[in-house]
């Protein structure tokens, strides 16, 4: 009997050989990135040799400060405070922004009314929001985190609104015919369709939020990476400034590699695998 060409299942897309190939393929970019970073360090070191200055320390000096701060425990305390503020502001901004964005994307009237507000908030400088939050609500943790979240919320709204507009009405109709409950509709129909938009706004969100958190700490907190950078700015200690900056960048990279990327791989596992 001849196999039917149209009806033949495409199960052979997941062969073990393809998986093994994928492993080396995923290792190569990591190796490339490592080589590239070592190259950057070398260039930095050479430049610092040519123009020796207190304002431009070589990488080894930065490393020494990093080790000293880590040994004293200061580094982890301040990194922890900043990380907590970044996470709190991130969760707040993503939750509020997603709900508002989906609401606006699904309702044209409401969208037409609130669209100018979104544009307005998109264009208010982060610094103004932070200063006003501190004046109105005092120099406290809630004002700091709220100010950061408010800076990010309009961006999330715009992205999620786009996602809600791009949803396929046929899935909603199918769910209606088969009487999906509210929970199933959100979990199996709504969220998977919004996932790419959610991923995009959380990516750009993390990057933006941690930069704003530093400003918030500089202006009105007595701990965190931003506070330390301000302190070392007054002492003119560039090595310490770079040490704190690089330490936090490293943490954000780890979060991207260990949290964001695996989650995204899981969320997009259903997309057709390369044959």
């Amino acid at each position: 009997m001849r196999a039917e060409p149209v009806d033949a299942p495409s199960v052979n897309a997941r062969e073990p050989a393809a998986r093994a190939g994928g492993f080396t393929r995923s290792l190569l970019p990591a190796l490339m990135a490592a080589v590239s970073l070592v190259g950057l360090c070398l260039a930095w070191d050479i430049a610092a040799e040519i123009w020796p200055s207190r304002a431009f320390p070589p990488p080894l000096d930065v490393w020494r400060v990093l080790v000293k701060e880590a040994a004293g425990g200061d580094l982890f305390y301040h990194l922890g405070m900043t990380l907590w503020r970044v996470s709190a502001a991130f969760v707040l901004a993503m939750a509020a922004g997603s709900v508002i964005g989906i609401l606006l994307g699904g309702n044209r009237r409401i969208d037409q009314f609130f669209s100018p507000w979104v544009v307005l908030f998109l264009n208010i400088p982060a610094l103004v929001v932070i200063v006003l939050a501190y004046i109105w609500f005092g120099l406290n943790e809630a004002a700091a985190i709220g100010a950061v979240a408010i800076n990010k919320i309009p961006n999330v709204i715009v992205t999620m609104r786009e996602g809600a507009r791009a949803m396929d009405p046929r899935y909603r109709e199918m769910a209606l015919v088969y009487r999906f409950g509210a929970f199933d509709r959100i979990r199996h129909v709504l969220l998977p369709q919004l996932q790419p938009y959610f991923a995009a706004s959380s990516r750009s969100g993390i990057a933006l939020i941690w930069k704003i958190v530093l400003v918030v700490e500089l202006l009105g907190r007595s701990n965190g990476v931003g506070f330390q950078i301000y302190l070392y700015f007054q002492l003119f200690d560039v090595a310490a400034i770079l040490a704190y900056t690089l330490a936090f960048v490293a943490i954000m990279l780890l979060i991207e590699l260990l949290l964001v990327q695996p989650f995204e791989r899981h969320a997009t596992r259903w997309r057709r695998r390369p044959a």
């Binding site: 009806d7 299942p9 199960v11 897309a13 259903w270 997309r271 057709r272 695998r273």
Partner: peptide
């Protein structure tokens, strides 16, 4: 005739399947 395809995702199916 779907017994062997229960764990596949729709993108892995032909239109007929």
């Amino acid at each position: 005739g779907l017994a062997g395809m229960r764990t596949l995702y729709p993108a892995e199916l032909s239109l007929g399947l």
